[in-house]
Design a binder for these strands. Structure first.
Lengths: 347, 347
DNA sequence: CACCTCGATTGGATCGATCTAGGTCGATCG
DNA sequence: CGATCGACCTAGATCGATCCAATCGAGGTG
């Protein structure tokens, strides 16, 4: 059993030390070493210390594959990673993924990325699930008609969704989401506090539940403050020039003094129209976007934007996944977190 | 051995089928099933067909952990994932990670993310390496004084760097990089072709080898075209307002008609100054950035920008990693890829 | 017909950590 | 003083796929 007898202290041995190596060297059994790693409370302090010392000396770290095989877990969380769409400002994924990686590390998980395929949306999930390569999934794209959540539920695969199952009443999975309506309400109130009364909305098409939810935050806040929303709303595609056109029309027809947008992309369109018309963002016309993208941060006139608490979302997701995996009762089916407002020169 | 005899056809069985299950059901031995999966050539066509049929019927997929344990591989590639810095336009990581995930999938690898820690830069690498959790690493931050590449080399850990070992003559690891100087040369020549002769450079501080490399592309192209660079260069921090200030000073002192920048962040600063001075980007003054970030794409006046071929970088990195892992001789120590120019209204 | 070859197939051993059942030892108690 | 207890530790079995050496069987050869 005495493998790895001679090894250089500075380079990685050809084969890393095993639990048996540590046991032999420390003069204890394998199980004792295992306990030292996983259940230190079971060992007598002096034995624990001796084993730990040996572990440190040998630079031992449990072999992942062996542990995974025995325990039927992988400590990996699968995430389908789709790139940010070109031509839009949405870089939220980047920040979210990082938060997720951080939150995972804290509790001993790692994040495994796999590519998406629009033609076969569950293919990637299926492979990883059947080969028991991951313990759970984080699903980020729970938009209308997305079959993944339903499919995973049916497979009894543990997963948590970032995003509510909007339209789907039968969906019984666990989710974490950000209250977009509250974010827009925050933005709208902010503008009202600054003295604006004619605040326009530029959002997405009506078939987007997320867009309609965000819009409701604007409507609600306006009405709560006794302000009219008539003729002040526009619903367009999420591209820059659509936002620019909508802003131009609204300025001509309704003379708003402020714009609240469903995305930073649309807000960029508004800024473009203001620029063409020689109107100064923040001084002449206020603009607020959504997502606090890099564009909002880097744009010469800093764009005020609703910022999703992605760090908290990630922590909450990981917390929930742990609960699912340890078969603790999951107290709530959904968690809704409050966004904040990143205030900059544009408002 | 006949586990999983009765199972619902629609939901995942409590324990997935094993190779032994398939073997028994197909009336062959385990080894034969293994061969059907890994070395189909060894089987007689009719046997192969029968085994494949059974695999499909049972929905069998080899257990990753068991395979990993036996073969001492994981099919995982580790990538330290640091988030884009707030306040800069650099979203290249997002695109690169996606490309890497795609390229990995093609050859049966997956990407594992782990967090970075500036205080202990090799900690994450060390853990994954010692627990044999990944087969290789992709290292993206090979800047001056970064100990990771040297450390990994010393540990004999397989890895490929995205980025040249600039200053380090002794570094003998394998790398893939984008020729920034060629990209800037492309941008500069593009401006010269448009009739510009007074083209200014705004780059990073002198201690950045990447910045100096990019700058050399500007110098080279200017001189090749018989143009002077005197008084047309500025070196500043990579933040928007530094770019804006540098542009203002250069406009006052040297009256350039075009700017080439080491980053989109700096280019945004230039655009800011142009906006303040009521100068139209593209018509009055041309501007070119670097990285083709979302900002460049979304900015109302589309920003012409050097675009790194990150898809190709990823493919090349994966190709090299495969070569390293299969102990094929790696023919070249470094690969330099050519960027392209995304031309928009700003030039 | 015995012998040989070579492709196809088999069963046992193995990777390294963990689970399980059982064993050791000193302290406590009737 | 021997039985009992509990804290601590040990050894064998196990997870599932692959490696390895050995075997089987069909076809060819002298």
């Amino acid at each position: 059993m005495a493998r790895n007898e001679h090894r250089s202290g500075s380079t990685l041995p050809v084969t890393p030390p095993t639990l048996a190596d540590v046991a032999e060297r420390a003069g204890v059994s394998r199980q004792t070493v295992s306990n030292a790693v996983n259940n230190p409370d079971l060992l007598r302090p002096d034995t624990l210390e001796r084993v730990r010392q040996t572990i440190a000396e040998l630079g031992y770290s449990p072999n992942r594959a062996a542990r995974n095989l025995r325990t039927r877990t992988s400590s990996l969380i699968g995430l389908r990673f789709a790139p940010a769409q070109e031509g839009t400002a949405n870089a939220a994924m980047d920040r979210f993924v990082h938060s997720l990686v951080e939150a995972s590390e804290e509790v001993g998980y790692h994040v495994l990325l796999f590519p998406g395929d629009d033609e076969d949306p569950v293919g990637g999930y299926d492979n990883l699930l059947r080969s028991t390569a991951v313990d759970a999934f984080v699903v980020t794209d729970t938009y209308l008609g997305n079959p993944q959540a339903a499919w995973l539920t049916q497979q009894r695969a543990p997963f948590v969704a970032f995003g509510r199952p909007w339209e789907d009443d039968v969906a019984r999975h666990v989710w974490v989401d950000v209250d977009g309506a509250a974010g827009i309400a925050l933005a709208t109130q902010h503008l009202i506090d600054r003295g604006h009364t004619r605040i326009a909305w530029i959002g997405w098409r009506k078939d987007s539940p997320i867009g309609e939810d965000r819009r409701s935050g604007w409507v609600r806040t306006m009405h709560q403050n006794g302000l009219s929303t008539t003729g002040l709303a526009s619903r367009v595609e999420d591209v820059v020039h659509s936002g620019a056109e909508a802003a131009a029309v609204l300025l001509d027809e309704s003379a708003p003094t402020a714009f609240v947008c469903a995305s930073d992309t649309l807000a960029m369109g508004v800024l473009h129209t203001l620029w063409i018309r020689q109107l100064a963002p923040g001084r002449d016309i206020a603009v607020v976007g959504f997502d606090d993208s890099q564009v909002a941060q880097v744009y010469p006139v800093g764009l005020t934007s609703v910022r999703q608490p992605l760090e908290d979302v990630a922590v909450e997701i990981i917390r929930t996944i742990r609960a699912l995996l340890t078969h603790q009762p999951v107290e709530t089916r959904g968690v809704l977190l409050e966004p904040t407002l990143a205030i900059r020169e544009s408002s």
